[in-house]
Each structure stands twice: as C-alpha cells, then as structure tokens.
Design a protein around this nucleic acid. Structure first.
Length: 598
RNA sequence: GCCCUCGUAGCUCAGGGGAUAGAGCAACCGCCUCCUAAGCGGUAGGUCGCAGGUUCAAUUCCUGCCGAGGGCGCCA
C-alpha cells in the first residue's frame, strides 16, 4: 500500500522514514533502491518494542548492499527530528522501533474533539468517482436474509469509501425485464383468479409466497372482476405441469404457456397493468425494507430502461464489430473463451430474445461509460462463475476490465436454539430480512452481518444477536457509549462542570496505564478506517470497536472519573469524550446506533 | 471432472512475509460500601489441515495432496 497523505501517526512516521531514505539516496547509498519504494510502518505487537516499527532496513539491505543493522543505523542517523518521537532504537535483525512522546498522544484528544465526526476520515480517495452496486435482488419477492448480508456489507463498503474521500454512487440494478417477472405477473394473476372464485391448479414453478396473495387481493379489491378470465380457457392447451401425480410433465413449458395465456387473454394493456402492480408493490417493499435497514441508494437502475434505450443491442453490435460474436444453431454466441472464460456464452437466443448476460454486458458497458473510475459489484458467492465472462465482455469491448472489482459475499446460515434454520426459496419458506430485523433488531443485524469477512461462510446466531448480555458484541460496544453518557449525566447531577477545558490543558495528568492504552487505541482509528476501506473489510471496524470498548470498560472498572481533583477530572472527562466520539464514528460507519442509555 | 472460497484453541472467528500466533464464548478462580456487574481481572487451552518450494525470515506467498462448502444451463 502506498503511503497515504493522511494525518495519522502512522503516515507521519512514514513521512519521516521517507525523508531519511531521501537523505541516504542523496549520499548515493541507495543506487539500486527503487525511487518509489513504499515505507512500511506497522504497529508493534509487543509494547517493549515501542509503538511503531519499520522493516525498511531489512527490505532494503540487499539492494543497498549493506547489512540490515548497518543500514538501520544510517537511517536512524538521517531521521529528521520530530516532537512526536521520543525514542528510536534498532532491534532484532534490523527493525527500527519508534516510541512516541506522551505529548503526541495527548495532542490527540483536542484533535478528536475538534474534528468530531470527521476524525478518522481522510482524502485518500481524492474525490475519485466510484460506483458500488449491491443487493440488486430480482423484484419477485421480499428480500431474504441472504440479501441482508449483501445489503449490510455493501452499505458499509460504500460508506467506508466515502469516509476515505471517494465520491460514492450507490446503485441497485432492478431486474424488471426478464422471464422471472413474467412468472411473477402470471402468479399474481392466477391468485387473483382464485380470489374471483375460479378453481385452478397453481403452477409448481409459480411464486407461492403469501405476498403474491396480497398483491392479488389488492387487484381484486380495487378492480373486482375486471381482470377475470375463465380458468378453463386459461389452461386450455397448456402442457401438463410436473408434479407428483404427473412426473412426466414439463414445469417450464407449463409456466411459459400460462404466461402466454395471460398475455393473450388480458391483452397488452391489462397484462402490463398486472405486471406493473406486482413489480411496483414488491419494489416499494424492498425500498422501504432497505431504508429501514439504513441502506439507501443514489440510483435504482432499471434493466427494462436499459433494454428500451437500445443499449443491449448496441453492446451486441459492438461485440459483433469487434469480431467476438458468432452464430450457431440459430443463436448468437459471444466467444468469451478468448477472454479466459471456460466456455462461450449465448447472448441472443434462438427465439430472438437477448439473454440476461447480454443485459449485463450492456449494463457494465454503461457503468464505465458513465465515467466511474472504479466500479464495484457486490454479488452473492453463487454468482462467482459470472466474473470471468463479464470481465471478458468488457475486454472484448476494448474497455479496461480492471476498473471493475467484483466482491463475493457468502451466504449466511441462521441458527436458532443451536439448530440450523431451514430455508427453501422454492416453497416460499425463507426468512425475510424484515423478519430478521423484527426478531433481532436493526443494530444487531447490521453488526452481525459485517462482523465476518465477506468470503467467510457465516453462522448467524439469532439467540446471541437477541441476547442482552456481555456475550453480545453489539451491546458490548453500545454499552461503552451509554456508560460515557451516564458518567456525564452523573457529573451534571453532582453539579460538576462537564464542559472540558480547551487544548491539552491538564492532559499530562493522564498517566495511568489504562489511559495510555486508551489513547493508543484512539490513535489507531484513522488507520482502521483506511485499512477497512482499502481492503473492503468492514469487519476490521467491528473488531476495532470491540477492542476500544474493552479498553474503555477496563478503564471504567479501574478508575473513578468524577474525582474531586478538578484538573484530573477535567482530563479524564476529555478522554472519555474522545472515546465517545470515536465510538460514535465507528458505530455510525457500520449503521449501528449509539444509545445514550441502555 | 473443471472453477471459486475456506481449513488457526473444545466452539465462533481475527491476524495474512517479521520479533513470544490473538479475541469472544464455553471451563475454572476472583472482583459491586464505588460514575450502569449489559462490566472487569486471572488460570487453563495451539504441530496455524499435510508435504514440498521461494526467502535473511513462512501460520502468512507458490505448488501438490487431504478435508469442508459453493459454482459450473439457449435459467435469472
């Protein structure tokens, strides 16, 4: 990772070492060292090694033709003086360890209090435009808990990128054009016919969830029998469904014939009306669901609009002109094997319909044309096979496929009472995101979803998420915040001034080991935000918050804050105000509330 | 069969070239006359799946193997 122009302690040290390297280079000592060498500064694991360490001398020993410890010594000699550095020493095979001054840590407190919500934010992204597309579930039913993880993860990745200075565009791709939507419209209509009193066998491939009944009921309530047709006519000539008593049936042919019947018997306008009713009802529900989950978008991008704008045909034309398309068995194929895919893919079917993949090519072409410097797609891990073909298509179009980053999120498995919660989309028996939010609450859901690396299979323990105990990491962190608020209320009750003095006044009184540990944790926050943003790993934030909360709880147990000694009390109040601020910033970043009392 | 991800403490997981591998839970022992015990401290617990390779240095990177999960359609 390149040195950042940030203001963190780490980046300041990076700068010092870089200056020392420049000095040695000026003396002609580093002829074979690349000029753009990135200085690595890390936090030490062992406090005996100081606060930070760099392996620069070890890494550069060979090109500098020096022994690591000799190079380290020269670097130390060339290091510019800095008020933040208390001691520098060479250790082990050639590490350079830095110990920072107490003043450097004390100065952190007024900085945190002055910057407030901005402490931890940076300009690393330099305003570059990045698009984050996430969730994008088909609007054929409510979001389930699998989508919830993508929603929480995507929202935090987007917020992290914004926090480090990117201009972020959050987008939901609405698949409102495909066959699945026709199946939904037909499902709604068939349920409506049942409500009208028609008797029929519901197709095994139809959508069977209760929400389909709800949409059908709206149609029936508001329009009576206006959309009614004789069930016998609907099913006339339709090939048999595949079900237990008819194992030889074809469920695909069956549902397709029913869609055709719906279109024929309703006519274009009335079919479109039923279709739109289903689509809009579900999309409104998804939008509201995500909003209540703290997930909002800049844009809901319609696949249908993409198709109607001619973008799909344009993409196919561009591929054809570039010579990456061929016809076979009546269909149009994209030769994706030329770009690393394992087999070629159909983009236009024998019946003239373009495939979902063709829309995807057009959509990604459009994303790049809109001028985003980075395009991030967040997909369910089951779509990983799509990555080579989408990237392949971009390469075939002559675009820079590296601008597209695909992050894959594994599914979450719910556990209740130690038992796996069984889910099946087919039968409509799945746990919805809304049910999860109702059961464990928004805060726990948001926190738990991003607590693990996205590529990790996740066991979501519902009982733990609900438990109001120390075991529950959400409450643990929130409780730290509530405790700070509680102390401030107590101070007010005792008529002690809560308004702290300015600057670093009294801060030298913070000499306890617990206080120093807390200050070190507070100083890490900008590094955590930067690291989490650059690696798209929100779990680094939750881990940090647990550590910070732990430092605070330990301190709380060991020392009284509201002491009679006014100067000491002032210093401690300033410290816990800084802790409160960083807890708020961290919880805010992952979409979790910071309650005043619990 | 091919592809992707993962194998770290009894369980759930961090760490991902660097100095003695960490946390939470579970187990055991302690701590409220005190700003919320939804809290804190301590003890115990590991051949970082196995075998090679690269490196001054490998749990981390590479290769192979073993094991777990997922994906491989003129579906979306």
């Amino acid at each position: 990772m390149l040195p950042s122009p940030g203001h963190s302690m780490k980046s300041k040290l990076q700068e010092l070492v870089a200056q020392a390297l420049a000095t040695l280079a000026g003396q002609g000592l580093l002829a074979e060292v690349p000029a753009d060498h990135a200085v690595q500064i890390e936090r030490t694991r062992d406090p005996a090694h100081g606060d930070f360490a760099t392996n620069t001398a070890l890494v550069l020993a060979k090109p500098a033709r020096m022994k690591p410890r000799d190079l380290a010594q020269r670097l130390v000699d060339a290091l510019p003086a800095s008020p933040m550095v208390a001691a520098v020493e060479i250790a082990g095979p050639g590490f350079i360890n830095f110990r920072l001054t107490e003043d450097a840590y004390h100065a952190l407190i007024p900085e945190i209090l002055a910057r407030g919500p901005d402490y931890g934010r940076s300009q690393l992204g330099a305003g570059k435009r990045v698009q984050v597309e996430f969730v994008s579930a088909n609007p054929t039913g409510p979001l389930h808990v699998g989508h919830g993880r993508g929603a929480a993860y995507g929202a935090v990745v987007a917020d992290l990128l914004a926090a480090v200075g990117y201009s972020v565009h959050r987008e939901y791709y609405v698949n409102d054009a495909g066959r699945q939507m026709d199946i939904l419209a037909t499902s709604v209509w068939l349920r409506y016919l049942e409500l009208c009193g028609e008797s029929l066998g519901f197709p095994s491939n139809g959508y069977k969830g209760d929400y389909v009944w709800d949409i059908a009921a709206t149609l029936h309530r508001e329009h009576g029998d206006d959309y009614r047709a004789d069930a016998l006519k609907v099913f006339r000539g339709v090939p048999p469904d595949q079900r237990d008593d008819e194992p030889d049936g074809d469920k695909e042919a069956h549902i397709d014939a029913l869609i055709a019947a719906a279109k024929r018997l309703l006519g274009d306008n009335r079919y479109r009306f039923v279709f739109e009713l289903g689509l809009n009802t579900i999309l409104d529900d998804i939008r509201a669901d995500l909003h209540e989950f703290g997930v909002d978008y800049q844009e809901w991008y319609s696949e249908r609009a993409l198709t109607e704008s001619g973008a799909v045909n344009k993409a196919i034309e561009r591929l054809r002109e570039a010579g990456h398309v061929y016809e076979q068995a009546g269909a149009l194929w994209f030769r994706s094997t030329d770009f690393g895919d394992e087999k070629d893919r159909v983009i236009e079917r024998e019946n003239g319909q373009t495939t979902y993949f063709a829309s995807d090519i057009a959509y990604h072409m459009d994303k790049l044309e809109r001028g985003f410097e980075r395009v991030i797609d967040i997909w369910g891990a089951d779509h990983h096979g799509y990555v080579p073909r989408v990237k392949g298509a971009l390469k075939a179009l002559g675009d820079d496929a590296d601008r597209l980053e695909v992050l894959l999120v594994q599914f979450a498995v719910l556990y209740r009472g130690g038992e796996k919660v069984q889910m099946s989309t087919r039968s409509g028996e799945f746990v919805t995101l809304r049910q999860l939010r109702k059961e464990v609450g928004r805060d726990a859901a948001r926190f738990f979803y991003v607590m693990r690396r996205c590529e990790q299979h996740m066991d979501f323990d519902l009982d733990l998420a609900k438990s109001q105990s120390a075991d529950n990491p959400v409450y643990y962190v929130q409780y730290a915040h509530a405790r700070v608020e509680s102390v401030l209320r107590q101070a007010a009750d005792k008529c002690m001034p809560v308004e702290p003095s300015r600057g670093t006044v009294n801060l030298q009184r913070l000499s306890e080991a617990h206080e120093q540990a807390l200050l070190r944790s507070l100083s890490r926050w900008p590094e955590v935000v930067e690291g989490a943003a650059m690696t798209a790993e929100p779990h680094q934030v939750t881990n940090y918050l647990r550590e910070l909360a732990n430092d605070f709880h330990t301190y709380y147990n060991a020392h009284q804050f509201l002491v009679d000694d006014a100067e000491l009390r002032d210093a401690r109040i300033k410290l816990i105000l800084a802790v409160r601020q960083v807890l708020r910033n961290g919880l805010g970043l992952i979409g979790v509330s910071a309650p005043d009392r619990m």
